[in-house]
């Protein structure tokens, strides 16, 4: 996790975006030191509601830069994920995929694919392909890295942060002793069809930047449509 926050820190620097306007919205608790380190505001919401919370923030103050960190493969709140992508809400979403709930022994997330050791017996369910879900619902930027692809992750974050629209970076970050295993068992395939990047046992994990495209954001579309209908009577949402 520290690796990811570090990459985020450097990513913000590299992207040139204003930290003061940045709000990090999470659905699990982060160490308060993160705030001091990153120099952003941090909102720890309840489980699964980070994307919806951030949606309200963005719509109320379009100047804010929203970085949403979610941790359970958007399982709680998966619906918010789908619809924020569909609306192309201007959010930068980082999904930390650690395959299981860290502090709860032997409970796998829907990202888990292991037949070996994560769960008490084994996960029998197909792991969720979040990049594909994001792409098929209209996300403008989709990438996946492991936490050890440090430079790639920084570059990816720096690249995604300034873009307008719904951005997803999935970061594979299992428990520390397994990190290297995943790093070594991954292959970089930029532009890979997200339908083919599902994580499967006995196959290499596909990482890289899968999607980068432009699409009108919710706020732009909203403003355009209301100007069209109401003309000068329309008052745009502005920061208070």
């Amino acid at each position: 996790m520290d690796k990811i926050i570090e990459a985020f820190h450097d990513g913000i620097n590299k992207s040139g975006r204003d930290r003061e306007k940045m709000c990090m919205v999470t659905d699990i608790a982060y160490d308060p030191e993160v705030v001091d380190y990153l120099g952003v505001d941090l909102f720890h919401t309840n489980r699964g509601r980070a994307i919806a919370f951030a949606t309200g923030m963005k719509l109320s103050n379009p100047n804010l830069i929203l970085a949403v960190f979610i941790g359970d493969m958007a399982t709680l709140g998966g619906n918010h994920f789908v619809h924020a992508a569909r609306r192309n809400m201007d959010l930068f979403v980082v999904c930390v995929n650690d395959f299981r709930y860290r502090k709860v022994a032997a409970q796998e997330t829907p990202g888990d694919f292991s037949r070996l050791e994560f769960s008490s017996y084994c996960s029998i369910e197909q792991p969720l392909n979040l990049p594909h879900l994001a792409r098929s619902n209209g996300a403008v930027y989709v990438a996946r890295w492991t936490a050890l692809h440090h430079e790639d992750l920084i570059n990816s974050m720096a690249e995604a942060l300034p873009q307008a629209g719904f951005k997803l970076i999935e970061v594979i970050s299992p428990k520390p002793e397994l990190l290297e295993f995943f790093y070594l068992n991954s292959e970089i395939k930029h532009g890979e069809d997200t339908a083919k990047v599902g994580i499967e046992e006995d196959k290499k994990i596909v990482v890289g930047k899968f999607v980068e495209r432009e699409r009108e954001t919710f706020i732009d579309a909203y403003n355009k449509q209301h100007y069209k209908v109401l003309g000068d009577k329309f008052i745009k949402i502005a920061a208070e």
């Binding site: 919205v25 909102f43 919401t45 309840n46 699964g48 509601r49 994307i51 919806a52 919370f53 951030a54 949606t55 309200g56 923030m57 963005k58 719509l59 109320s60 103050n61 804010l64 709140g77 619906n79 918010h80 789908v82 619809h83 008052i235 745009k236 949402i237 502005a238 920061a239 208070e240």
Partner: peptide
């Protein structure tokens, strides 16, 4: 100058209301 959004569900509605409130 107000925003109405039809959210995906009531869970999202209320969460976004909290976010909006903190955003000012």
């Amino acid at each position: 100058g107000a925003q109405f959004i039809q959210m995906e569900d009531e869970l999202g509605s209320i969460a976004s209301v909290l976010g909006a409130s903190w955003a000012g």
